[in-house]
């Protein structure tokens, strides 16, 4: 195998659909064995980029190498070392979970023995054993996604693309999915995932690439990005004005913001729950009566605000679907 320093290396990728320029010179370098998130709003070009990296689309300009193989000239070699989990759970509804996995194993050209062994391993690992012989159309959303991800892992590909792996999942299934993804990384797999949520990128990725309108606008660890966007803040509200005054004295920091009308204040918080507990204890000791408390985390919007001076473009559902259509052309 032609080894390169990076598992994934994309240089100056351009892609247009008709007059619509989706990617405008995107660069990406991903070290082997790391997990990287491509973070951006709808229409930023995330899906198009994943489709180029996974050989489904050809770039108009620029080059991509996956483990040293060119995605255009050597697509076949690339396909045998990648696993793709798209935005839709692409499982066959009229096949059972087990049959879906076995079909994928054979299509990855694994031997019959390896296919059977891997299918059973994955059913176990992804907690689908109990439903293994039910048609996939009877599965819940979370279960379908798990089966879908399991299917892309059957040939133990060293590189995995996850396009919005938790979109449309309920919070519990999302947490389960996150656990599964985190486990993959500990096994040495290189993962590129796309997401619209800073929280998800933060939770899963070692490195985050923020893209907007087809270009990389920032890159860094979650902490680096957040420090650009402003820290997490903690807010308190109090019973009386005198409580507020006392609290102001207790906190007295540079990042303190007071709202007299609401009888409340907020302060940046980079030490998590420990700091909140500390503050509450101090209030207690000084007999300051607290009526409410909340934490606010910086969001993709905040990062965008800082990076671009505008809000992350929230497109309505119509734009979203047309974006998907374009990505499929």
């Amino acid at each position: 195998m032609a080894k390169s320093k990076y598992a994934i290396q994309a240089t100056n990728i351009h892609k247009s659909f008709g007059k619509l320029e989706v990617l405008k010179g995107l660069d990406l370098k991903i070290h082997r064995g790391t997990i990287v998130a491509l973070l951006g709003p709808n229409g930023a070009g995330k899906t198009t980029m994943v489709r180029i990296l996974s050989t489904l689309l050809r770039p108009d300009k620029g080059a991509v190498s996956i483990e040293g193989y060119d995605v255009v000239k050597d697509a076949h070699s690339v396909r045998s070392i990648i696993g793709l989990t798209g935005q839709y759970a692409a499982v066959d509804e009229y096949l059972t979970g087990r049959e879906n996995l076995r079909m994928m194993g054979r299509l990855y050209h694994l031997s019959k023995e390896d296919t059977l062994r891997r299918s059973e391993e994955l059913l176990e690992q992804f907690d689908i054993v109990g439903a293994a012989d039910r048609y996939a159309k009877t599965y819940s959303g979370g279960m379908r996604r798990r089966l879908d991800l399991a299917a892309s892992l059957i040939a133990t590909p060293p590189i995995i693309f996850l396009d919005e792996p938790t979109t449309g999942l309920d919070p519990r299934s999302r947490l389960a999915m996150w656990d599964i993804i985190q486990n993959l990384v500990t096994q040495g797999t290189t993962i590129l995932l796309t997401t619209q949520h800073l929280e998800e990128a933060d939770r899963l990725a070692e490195y985050i690439v923020v893209i907007d309108e087809g270009k990389v606008i920032a890159g860094g660890t979650a902490d680096e990005l957040k420090s650009k966007a402003g820290r997490e803040r903690v807010q308190f509200t109090f019973e009386r004005d005198s409580d507020l005054k006392k609290a102001e004295k207790i906190i007295d920091g540079k990042t303190l913001e007071v709202d007299k009308k609401l009888k409340g204040l907020s302060v940046s918080n980079d030490k998590g729950v420990a700091r909140v507990r500390q503050l509450l204890e101090k209030f207690e000791n000084e007999k300051v009566r607290v009526t409410g408390m909340s934490l606010s985390k910086p969001t993709l919007d905040d990062v965008f605000m800082k990076l671009t001076g505008r809000k992350a473009t929230h497109k309505d559902s119509h734009d979203e679907s047309s974006d998907k259509k374009e990505a499929q052309l």
Partner: peptide, 15 residues
Amino acid sequence: DIRRGIVDRFKSLPM
């Protein structure tokens, strides 16, 4: 198959 993303999945395989 195209709508459901199944064709995409097959296209990404060495088949």
